[in-house]
Nucleic acid binder design. Sequence first.
RNA 1: GCGAGAGUGGCGGAAUUGGCAUACGCGCCAGACUUAGGAUCUGGUCCCGAAAGGGUUGAGGGUUCGAGUCCCUCCUCUCGCACCA
Length: 868
Amino acid sequence: YDWSRELATTDPEYFRWTQWIFLRLFDTWYDADFQWTDPAGKSHMGKGLPIAELPIPDPVRAAGSEAVRRYQDKHRLAYQTEAPVNWCPALGTVLANEEIIDGKSERGGHPVVRIPLRQWMLRITAYAERLLDDLDTVDWPESIKLLQRNWIGRSEGAEVDFFIGGSASSAISSTSPTPAAINDFQNWNQTRAKSGFPREAGSDVIRIYTTRPDTLFGATYMVLAPEHSFVERLTSPSQKSAVETYCRQAATKSDLDRTDLAKEKTGVFTGSFAINPVNGEPIPIWIADYVLISYGTGAIMAVPAHDLRDWAFAVKFGLRVVGVVQPPADYEPNQEEKHLAREVKGRTEWPFAGVGTSIASGSYNGLSSTEFKEKITNDLASQGLGRRAVNYRLRDWLFSRQHFWGEPFPIWHELDASGNPTGLLRTDPESELPVTLPEMRHYKPHGRPEPPLAEAPPDWRFRTDKDGTRLARETNTMPQWAGSCWYYLRFIDPKNHTAFVDPAKEKAWMPVDLYIGGAEHAVLHLLYSRFWHKVLFDRGHVSTCEPFRRLVNQGMILGEAELAGYRIADGNEAAVSDPQSGIPFISARRVRDDMDEISGKPVVAVKLAPEQVAKKGNEFVLAGNPDIIVESRAFKMSKSRGNVVNPDQVVADYGADALRLYEMFMGPLEATKPWSMSGVEGVSRFLARVWRMISDEGADEIRINPAIQDAAATPEQTRLLHKTIQAVTNDIESLSFNTAISRMMEFVNAISVQDPRPRTVIDPFVLLLAPFAPHLAEELWQLLGHAQTLAYEPWPAFDAALLVETEVEIPVQINGKVRGKVRIPVGADQEAAVLHAKSDARIAEQLTGKQIIKVIYVQNRLLSFVVK
RNA sequence: GCGAGAGUGGCGGAAUUGGCAUACGCGCCAGACUUAGGAUCUGGUCCCGAAAGGGUUGAGGGUUCGAGUCCCUCCUCUCGCACCA
C-alpha cells in the first residue's frame, strides 16, 4: 500500500508538517551531554540542543562562518552522507559512488549538475540509550521489548589503542621490531601516560572495541574490516596485490553473500604488525570480512583462545593461540565450542568463550574475569591507553529513497559558479512549506540510480536565492516511515493548518493508551516513531516522552487451512501411487523446509479434498494409502498461493458486522489464526438469531417481536443478564473478545427461546453487543423504540448482589477422582459440606468400609476425601 | 546456532490462574417443518465399553490430596536475529 502516494494526492498538509518535523531534526545538535528540562519541570541529562545554541569551539569560530556552518552540519541529527557505495534497488546492484556520478549524464536536455547520489541519514544512534532505557516505562509485551533491546544491542566494554607507529614508513613490519620501533613505542607510551586517552584515534594507533578487555593478554593478532581507512597504509609491498584482490572481492559481495558464506572464514595478512599495549608483543594485522566496518571501530583485537570466530580464523590461517582464561573446574564445552575442537599433539583443544579465572596475564593472574575487566579498564584509562566504552548495534537510519512518491526534503544544495555543489545546504523557510511534488510525465523508477526527481522541471529543481547563490533542490524523497512516524499525533488534530497538532489537544490525548499493531513493526516503525517522538519532546512540541503507553500485537490471519499431498513432477521415483487418484504421491515427511526439489526433480503440491484424507495417529494420510503422509496447515495469505481473502467480498456477502465479529471471535487477539469461511457463516448465523430474537420475522414489515414485553424479568433471566454483563465487561477489559462473544451467544441461546422476553433484559444486551456489531445493534436499538442513537448510552452495569446464588454444585473427589456432585448452600462450611456429601447415596457407598485420612474443602469449589 | 512463543476433539478455540478438561463456534450424524433446502428449529457428537466403569491436554519423569496449568528431560511447530568483537 503506497501510503506516501495517498498522502501526496489527498493531504498536502501532511507533507507540510512532516517536512516541518524534519526541519526540527535538521536543526538539532546531538553530540553532547547537557542538562535539559522536561515540560513537567524535571531535569534530565540528555541530548538534542538546538543548532543555534551549539557551542562552537574557538578554532572553528576563528576559521570563519563557513567553517561554523560545516561544524554545525556535522552535528545535526539529520545529515547527508556520501556513502562509499550505494545500493540501487532498481538495478539490484552495488554501484561505487563515482559510477553514480558518471551515470548522471546529460539526459533530457536538463543542465548537468554533478551532485553525487548522497543519502540522508537520521542519527537515531544519538538516542540509542534513551530508546533502550525508556522501554522500562511502557506497558508492552516483553517479547517486543526484547526485540528492541536486541536491535539496539547495547554492550559494555572498552576501547583500546594498539600502537602501529607514527607514519607509514615507521610502521612496525616484522615479528622482531627494530630498536627504532621499540623506541617509538616507549616514547608513545610515555606521552600517552601524560596526555591521556585522546577523543579521536590518531594515525599512529589502531583503535579497537572489545567487551572482553580481560583477554587482552591473549590477543595474538588484529583484524581490520576490508573498508578500514588504514588498510592501504598498513599493506606491505609484498602483500599489496593480495590485499587489493581481497578487498575488491569483499566490496562486490553483497551483505547477503557475506553472511551466507558465514561458515568459512576468509582473510589476508597486511604484512604489518601492531604492539599489544599490555605486554609489548608485536602481533600481525590481518584483513577479514568477518569484521564489520559498521560496528565498533571496524577493527578488533583477536583472541583466538576465547572467541569462537577468532578461533576459527586462527585455526584456518595457523595463527598463535594463547589461553588466558581458565574455565571453572566443572566446565563442559558447549555444542559450538566442541564443534570447533581440534587435536594438538594428541590433546583436544577447544575455544572457551565464557568467564573464569585469569592466567598468563602478568600481575592480573588469579583474578576472576569480572574483577579483571574492571581493574584493567581503570588501569588502561590511567595510562591513557584505553577507556570504558559503550557500543550499540543500532545504526543510523538511512532516511532517503529514490522514489517519486514521498515527501521531498525541504533542502537546497548551494552551487558554485560552475554549477557544482559546494556541500553546503540551505533549508526552506517554514512559511514556504510544503515542498510539493512537481508535475512529471515520467515519475516511475527508471532503473538508473538517481532519483526520478533529478529530472523534474528546471523551475522546481533550481532557484537563485536573494543573495545571488544558485541552489539545486534535493532530489531524494523521504521513505514511507516519515508519515507513519507521527500520524498518531495528526489523528488528534487532522485539520489544523497552523500547527502539526494543537498543544492543548496533544496534552489532552497523548500518550496513545492502546496501540494494536502487527509484530512485524516491532523494531522498525515502533523504534522510528519513538525516536521522532523523543526529538519532538526534547524540543517541547509534545508533552510525553513515549508515544505508546500500551502495545498489543494482533496475530496474523492466515489463509484457509489446506490439505496438500506432494508428488515429484516428472516420473514416480520412490513414489507410491494413490489408488484413488492414480497420482504418484510422496510422503510429506520428505518435503520439509520449503524444499522444492528431491534428487534434482521439482516437487509439486497437490490440493486434496477432505474425503481423500484420513487421520492416522498424529498425522494426516491419504485415505487410499495410509503410508503417504499429507500436510494439513494454513499458510500466509499470498497472491502466489491464491489463498487471499478479500475483506470487501466478505463485507458484500455477510456484512461488515459479521466480518468484524468473526475476526474477534476466531481466537485470542495475539495468536496467528487461520481464516475459515464457515466460521464467518457461524457468526453470521448468530447475528441472524439476535435479529430474530428482537424483530418479528413473521411480519411483512420490520417490526418488534411480540415476545418483547415490558414484563418483569424472572430471577434466572436477571442473573443470566448480569452474569453476561460481568463476563463481557471483563473480557473487553482483557481484550479477550472471543470469549466475550461466546458469552453473548450463550445468552442468546437461552433467551431467544423464551416468551416473554422482558425489555429490561433485552435492552442492556443490545448495548453489550454494540461494540462488536455496531450496525446491527443500532438497528435493534431503534427497533426497540429508542429515538436516540445508543452511542450515548452508558455501558450496562452489573449488580454483584444479583449474581449471588443460594446453592452451588460442587464436585466431590475421592482419592483425587471425581465420584459425584452435591448441591450445597453457598458459603457452607466444611462440616456441612461433608454432611451433604455423605448423604449422597453414591458417595456414601464409595466411602463405606474406608477410613477417611484427610478432607480437603475449598469453599464453593470442591470437596475431596483421601481414604484408605 | 542464538532468542522468544506455542503444542488441548475432525477444525478454530474455552478452562475464574493448582480445583468438574473440551465452554462457544465450525464440521459431522439423526430428527422436525418442507415440493425442495446450502433456510430454520430440536437432539446427539473426545476415546474404549452393551453397561457398570475406565482412559484422555505432544512424549517421558517429578512435586501435590489434586496438574492442561508448577518443576526437570526430550520431541515438534511458528516467529525474530544471525560473524555485533
